[in-house]
Simulated assay, not measured.
Amino acid sequence: MTAGLRYDGRVAVVTGAGRGLGRAYARLLASRGAKVVVNDPGVSMDGNGADAGPASDVVREITADGGEAVACTESVATAEGGRGIVSSALDHYGRLDILVHNAGIVRSAPLTEMTYEDFDAVLDVHLRGAFHVVRPAFPVLRDAGYGRVVLTSSIGGLYGNQGVANYAAAKAGIVGLSNVVALEGAACGVRCNVIVPAALTRMAAGIDTSAYPPMEPELAAPVVGWLAHESCTITGEMLVSIAGRVARMFLAETPGVYRPSWSVEQVAEDLGAIRDTGAPWILPVVPSAHVDHIRRSFAIATEEEQHVG
């Protein structure tokens, strides 16, 4: 990240900022001039308990380095908590410019053993938690005519993994939410993107990481830093950060095959062409991927019908 990019005068909220990736994000933003609300209720990895220590510790680290921050221990898992987190920024600093939703918990189990409680608890923090902070923050950003929102997904959500149906569903849902924020924010200076990070944090407990390359949270923080900066030029996109590799992740579809009617056998017959990724459609969310998908699909049908006619 270019040394000249700063956040002077900006106020940032970072959820799950007491440890790991969130701590790295908060410290980076603060080191470059942002006033930061360090949000973390200090729960265990499975979402139980509470401890004001982690958030307070990060605030002390920031202030010791000459930055400005305030701790907030509200939970993103409830709508009330989400409102409290946003209110913390407004009450202490009078504004909000940057929202980074990083908070997360893990409750792993195979599908046959996962409880409904564990499924809901993970969605409450990751996906509903994102909505709980976005919902009160968005009107503030809209009315100010400026905002940067960074939501957190995962390769576990976009590619799936065994034993994490709750986590995968939540992280996939984050992408849809981010796209809507990007679309609705486009006209009022609010940009929203997704970070897909990987780092060695307490989530890696129990995994043999001895052969892993360097993957400290600080390695991923600059990507979030750029997405949170006023110079960020993208919206409605996903950036991956893993072991020093930064990449764009995107949805795509094949051109497919058109028929005026289909049988089950014809789907089987055309499957190779249906799945051919040689000339993919990559439709930018903003300004009009939804409409472009429909328009291009209809155009193929119309052209083929005219050709047959």
Rank of each mutant, 00 (worst) to 15 (best):
M1S: 12
M1E: 07
T2R: 13
A3S: 10
D8H: 12
V11N: 06
T15E: 07
T15P: 03
A17P: 01
R19F: 00
L28F: 10
R32I: 01
R32M: 08
V37A: 07
V38P: 05
S44A: 14
N48S: 15
G49M: 05
A55H: 12
V59I: 07
I62Y: 03
A64T: 06
D65T: 07
E68Y: 01
E68S: 13
V70K: 06
A71L: 08
V76S: 08
T78K: 09
G81L: 07
G82K: 02
S88V: 01
L90N: 02
R95C: 04
A103H: 08
V106L: 15
T112W: 11
D120M: 08
V125H: 09
V125L: 06
L127D: 02
G129S: 09
A137H: 06
G145M: 12
Y146W: 14
V149N: 04
V150P: 10
L151I: 05
I155V: 14
G160K: 00
V164E: 15
A165L: 11
Y167H: 13
G173F: 04
I174F: 15
E184D: 11
A186S: 15
A186R: 08
I195N: 08
R202F: 01
A205R: 12
A211M: 09
P213S: 10
P217M: 04
L219P: 02
A220S: 14
V223F: 04
V224F: 02
W226H: 15
L227T: 04
A228N: 07
E230A: 13
S231W: 01
C232F: 00
L239R: 12
I242G: 11
I242F: 00
R245K: 14
R245V: 13
V246Y: 14
V246L: 12
R248G: 13
L251Y: 13
Y258I: 07
E265Y: 00
D276P: 07
G278E: 08
G278Q: 05
P280M: 08
W281V: 00
V286W: 06
A289P: 05
H290S: 13
R296Q: 13
S297P: 01
A299F: 00
A299S: 12
A301R: 11
E304I: 00
Q306V: 03
